[in-house]
Amino acid sequence: MKTLADLEKIKNKTLDKMNIRADREEGIRIVVGMATCGIAAGARPVLNAVSDEVSKRNLKNVVVSQTGCIGVCRLEPIMEVYAPGKDKVTYVKMDAEKAVKVVAEHIVNNRPIKEYTIGEADK
């Protein structure tokens, strides 16, 4: 790494890999909050379940990643889905079973499970 241009190259390459560009046509990114608050609430089994399910179902172009704390620690474990052309969907109070369901319903069949989302958390 010697110049700002080198940084730019990594940036562009990674943005594609991350499935996070707003203008992309396909590619889904799933992140699980893995800060101390998330881990304490049980994020590790959630992350494992998502990764397993994605590989079991042989889903292409789905990136599963860990991330830090997004703030609403009381609703951990939190899992977010970034699908192209849509607002990201934030799932809260996840467990392995719910996470598997999200993969089947939301990722494969494109039907977000509204009852698990943050907007429904207190209803």
Partner: peptide
């Protein structure tokens, strides 16, 4: 970047 990038991947920070 908290809650967006993978903290263990420098490329994502650079992105």
């Amino acid at each position: 970047n908290c809650g967006i990038i993978d903290p263990e991947n420098i490329d994502e920070y650079i992105a």
